[in-house]
């Protein structure tokens, strides 16, 4: 879980965010917006996976 927190800190921080801060789109959705929500969802999925797999 600590590792996931670290991962999140990296995903949602300056250098990575800057990569997506461009006026491009993904299926018509701005890249930054799409990236944040996809990464966020991925993070939550990972957290669920880790915590439910615990026992």
């Amino acid at each position: 879980m600590i590792a996931l927190c670290m991962l999140g800190c990296v995903l949602f921080n300056f250098p990575v965010l800057a990569l997506f801060n461009v006026p491009a789109t993904l299926f018509g959705v701005p890249l930054l917006y799409a990236y944040i929500f996809l990464a966020w969802g991925l993070l939550i999925a990972l957290m669920a996976w880790v915590i439910e797999r615990r026992d």
């Binding site: 879980m1 600590i2 927190c5 999140g8 966020w40 993070l43 939550i44 957290m47």
Partner: peptide, 15 residues
Amino acid sequence: PIYIGPTLMIALWWI
């Protein structure tokens, strides 16, 4: 950030 921050912190909740 107001919602992503908590997500990151919740990752540490188990601890």
